[in-house]
Design a protein around this nucleic acid. Sequence first.
DNA 1: AAGCTGACCTCGC
DNA 2: GGCGAGGCCAGCT
Length: 114
Amino acid sequence: MSSYKKLDFFDRVFKIVAKIPKGKVTTYGKIAEACGIRSAARTVGWALNSAKNSNLPCHRVVNRFGALTGRVHFGDPALMESLLKSEGVEFLEDGCVNLQKHLWTPEKSFSNNG
DNA sequence: AAGCTGACCTCGC
DNA sequence: GGCGAGGCCAGCT
C-alpha cells in the first residue's frame, strides 16, 4: 500500500497538525512517524511552510528539543512563546517547551482513509 | 529541465 | 559516546 499519492503525505501532515490539542506541542519526527515516514521529518517542516498560509497551529509544532525553530517564519520567537503560553504551555530556561509535560503524540487513527 | 534548498530526524562507524 | 552522512517531499532558480 505504498502506492499512495505523494501529496497524500503532505496532506497527512496538515491533518495531524490541525488535530494538535490546545496547550500541547508535538515534534516533526512524531508527525512524520505518524504519517508513516519518520525520515520525512524535514518534509513535515516544509509542509508547515505551506501550512503557515493556512489556519494550522504551526506554533504548536517544535523540534525534538522543544525549540521554536519556525520563529523565522513567525517573525519573532516571542510571538510563538506568547501563543503557546497563552494556551498554557510552559517554557524552560533554555526557551524550549516543556515537552515532558506538553509533549503530544499524534494519532494514526485517521490514517485509515478516515 | 536539472539542481539546490528547507522549520528535521535517524542510522552508521 | 561523538561525528558524519542519508533520507523524505515539494518549491524555487
